[in-house]
Design a protein around this nucleic acid. Structure first.
Length: 246
DNA sequence: AACCCACACAACCGCCGGGAA
DNA sequence: CTTCCCGGCGGTTGTGTGGGT
């Protein structure tokens, strides 16, 4: 499996993306798609490596990417999924539609890991206030692609933010499910989780029948509190994940 | 008021697996 | 069947920002 370097780095730009580059990339993908990441930068006239373009698109420019603070529910889900899946960020991200592995990874390393370390397991899921600075407000504007159908959140000058790793999930969510582009706060509503449950349950088939699994038993035991809810989802996701891995 | 430190986030790097030729 | 290319993933690093001293 001899591999050549992902891209010839000579003359290629690196570092933060500009709004102009973002718009070029978005416009090109909306028009031509991204069947070949390697060729894309040349076709689009970007002095970037294909990998960089892909990352930028996946993590920030995709229209179905959620930005903004993680809700406590999402954080709890991450913690629990991480406890079960380990550093499989893409798998965790797949269970949090609209969130990317990169974003989840960052959140984990910045708050959640420390939260777990500083507080013992019993208080592990309490909503932690940021120790120091509050999150920067993210001024998101929207770039409408040439087809007029797709809008993309774009920051005025700094990097754009959006992300979503799980395409299959994203496709079922389409672009704006439970996501308001002009809001910094993302809220998971009931319909979102219902849909997610439907998707996961569908893919996991008869996973729920695996009685005897402590996780499953624990998760299915109660649906009244939000923590119990999260346990349930986590368990469900876990089951689905296990099925995928088989 | 200035400097230093810690945090948060974006981006890059290298490796691996799958698919195509 | 073998080799090569590409996409995807996880780990790590760099940079900017804001708070604390």
């Amino acid at each position: 499996m001899g591999r050549s370097p992902c891209c010839e780095k000579t003359g290629l730009k690196r570092g933060p993306w500009t709004a102009e580059e973002d718009m070029i990339l978005v416009a090109h993908i909306e028009r031509h798609g991204h069947s070949n990441w390697r060729a894309l930068p040349k076709q689009a006239g970007l002095l970037r490596c294909g990998k960089s373009c892909r990352l930028r698109w996946i993590n920030y420019l995709r229209p179905d990417v959620k930005r903004g603070n993680f809700t406590s529910e999402e954080e709890d889900a991450i913690i629990q999924l991480h406890a079960m899946l380990g550093n499989r960020w893409s798998m965790i991200a797949a269970r949090l539609p609209g969130r990317t592995d990169n974003e989840i990874k960052n959140v984990w390393h910045t708050h959640l890991k420390k939260r777990l370390e500083s507080s013992n397991p019993s208080g592990g899921t309490s909503a932690a206030a940021p120790k120091r600075k509050a999150k920067k407000p993210v001024a998101v504007t929207t770039v409408v692609a040439h087809d007029g159908l797709t809008s993309v959140p774009v920051l005025p000058e700094q990097p754009i933010s959006s992300s979503a790793t799980d395409y299959s999930m994203a496709s079922s969510m389409e672009t704006t499910e439970s996501f308001s582009p002009d809001s910094h706060e993302f809220q998971i509503d009931d319909s979102f989780w219902s849909e997610t449950l439907a998707i996961e349950a569908d893919s996991s088939g008869s996973a729920m029948e695996s009685a005897g699994d402590p996780l499953l038993v624990a998760g299915g035991a109660s649906m009244s509190s939000s923590n119990a809810d999260m346990d349930f989802w986590v368990t469900l996701f876990m089951q689905a994940g296990d099925m995928e891995n088989l």
